[in-house]
Design a protein around this nucleic acid. Structure first.
Lengths: 342, 342
DNA sequence: CTTCAAATTGACAAGGTTGTCAATTTTCGT
DNA sequence: ACGAAAATTGACAACCTTGTCAATTTGAAG
């Protein structure tokens, strides 16, 4: 494993010059630059990350922090993030925050950050992205933050990449309305997630624009998981006046509704239209394939890393607006025009 | 950010003593140990990873290498690996190997390893786990390897954690036989994966034990993805003498078969029993819920990390047998006794 | 051709930890 | 209580890079 000194000797310059070339610093003649680059190539030299980190107090590591809920959402964002890091010479390390216990979450995190192995930046995946305590802790440690998935309620600093959840939910609801549905049920996500609120607001807004009141019987507080979708579906379908369409705040819950319909012998989409949100892996593997909102998760992850790394060196804390990426309505087989019983 | 020197001063000892306490080295009086530990706690001291790495030539990082195929399998193993690392003071970083192009794969990897930021160990996830070139490269760089998912064909060094794919596939096939099925179709995985071969062998062995010949029409070479399962299902169901059961080498392909059956109006499990492998996320979210083989993916990931870290310091390359974890047959609604048309 | 300013280059220290080896203290046998 | 051996403790260098600042070279102007 060669070091800078070797390169310097081979190129016949000082190690500092090598350093300058490697870091694209000015004040080096072109001739020298080439000589150094040749030597680097010849020796297959790669700088020592640990020495760099030690001296420069940076780790060339981005830490992705997410809670321990597995699934397509985090997984895909993470893949995007890894790709973004790899393309820029950074590493992505992953921290899992298991507990629902806030105290423990913060301790885990603090531990992580106090270490001199602290990351140069942190990527917060929803719902952690809008967690106030986490935010504060990171600010104390002066670690740049990027958020994926939802803006914080408080005006935290840090960059963000997200989609317009409210608009997307509104569009989906409007689509269902356009199919003739009037009684549209909604399954909310986990309370506390910003997306939960925003998607519900989109649903409300669409109904309001058609002067339809939200029927409390048609709104269920889910948990973003399959089980709660199942329960919601069972509840909706045993109403005396059941809905003709159901829109769940994510695909897992929509799959649950589908399951409930199957178990009750209700045909989808003939008797019940079902829509999801996320366009996750399962959306097109279930029957009928799910009408849903596509989120560009890979791009969210990669975009967040890109923005994060680009602000790393800077100190100008100019206000950053989150980047809004486009979503897309994906119509598959789980929705259809309402059967006229007129 | 406090350093060792601060701790040493507060405790009234030399920094070397602090170092010794922190690394659980011998030759320190209990009294000193306590004093140092108190000081550490008081100052909230955490050692600098970069300094440690620089001096000790270790990075306290494990690198998980996987190809870029997203999905429940890699995701879950990875979560297990993160948990394993966190529990032992290691970081998990992730390398994605995009290309199918072997040359590029190896270059990416070489780059990763030549860097002084090289990981202390590498976790190879199937199908990379049995890739001979990757293996060789890692050996050249003397980086300890752990493998998850399948043993290498060649007797590579390194630890491994896996399940007995062949036995599991055999059990599943035997279960289908026990339900009265005789014409059992099989969808193979991607060629080149060891699991593909082993699972097929399990299927063959079970049939052989009942003196049933493998019918080439009932074996399809899939790709481990939904699409190929769909195609396989279509093919099986349009045979003049279709199978009464189909066993796919993973759940995604089984879901594809289910989809094909739906599209042809074939009822599952009444007219066709379907079984998968992996017990992945979708297995119980589709209808009918999938009979499958459960793999303890979290444990595979965590176990591999645990074994890997435990051999890190050592040089005694005693032969290591892979750890075999238990699988489990999960019977859900996609399989049933054959309808007697006797 | 000289002088001065600007550009280029290099010597050296610092960053926090651990290995080596020497110095010091403790323990034990007599 | 004395000396030798063992255990404990500490001083210092080394790991590799980059920032600081001084030394050197180059270029421009007179």
């Amino acid at each position: 494993m060669s070091k800078m000194k070797d390169v310097a000797e081979l190129a016949g310059v000082s190690i500092k010059t090598v350093s300058r070339v490697l870091n694209n610093e000015p004040h080096v003649q072109e001739r020298m630059r080439d000589r150094v680059r040749d030597a680097v190539k010849k020796l297959n030299y790669v700088p020592s990350n640990s020495a760099r980190s030690l001296r420069g107090n940076r780790s060339y590591t981005i830490n992705l922090i997410c809670n321990s809920h597995r699934g397509n959402y985090v997984n895909t964002i993470q893949f995007g993030a890894v790709m973004g890091c790899q393309a820029r010479g950074y590493q992505l390390s992953i921290t899992l925050i298991e507990s629902e216990d806030r105290q423990k979450i913060l301790e885990t995190l603090e531990n992580r950050l106090t270490s001199h192995a602290k990351p140069d930046g942190v990527l917060l995946v929803a719902p952690l992205a809008s967690d106030f305590g986490v935010d504060k802790l990171l600010r104390e440690h002066k670690i740049p933050i990027a958020r994926v998935g939802s803006s914080p309620i408080v005006d935290g600093d840090g960059v963000g990449v997200e989609i317009d959840d409210m608009a997307a939910a509104r569009e989906m609801t409007e689509y269902l309305l356009s199919l003739g549905h009037q009684r549209i049920a909604f399954v909310r996500g986990k309370e506390g997630h910003i997306a939960t609120q925003q998607r519900f607001q989109g649903y409300e807004a669409a109904l309001a624009s058609k002067n339809i009141k939200v029927d409390p019987d048609l709104v269920y507080k889910g948990e973003f998981d399959f089980k709660s979708g199942l329960v919601a579906g069972e509840k909706f379908l045993s109403l005396s006046n059941p809905p003709t369409a159901a829109f769940a705040a994510n695909d897992d819950m929509a799959a649950g509704i589908l399951m409930a319909a199957k178990q009750k012998g209700i045909k989808v989409p003939e008797e019940l239209s079902v829509a999801g949100f996320d366009d996750s892996e399962i959306a097109e593997k279930i029957w009928p394939a799910l009408t849903t909102v596509h989120q560009p998760l890979l791009k969210l992850g990669e975009g967040a890393i890109s923005k994060l790394i680009s602000v790393l060196g800077r100190t100008d804390t100019e206000e950053q607006h989150p980047t809004i990426l486009a979503h897309e309505l994906i119509v598959r087989q789980s929705t259809s025009k309402i059967k006229g019983n007129l």
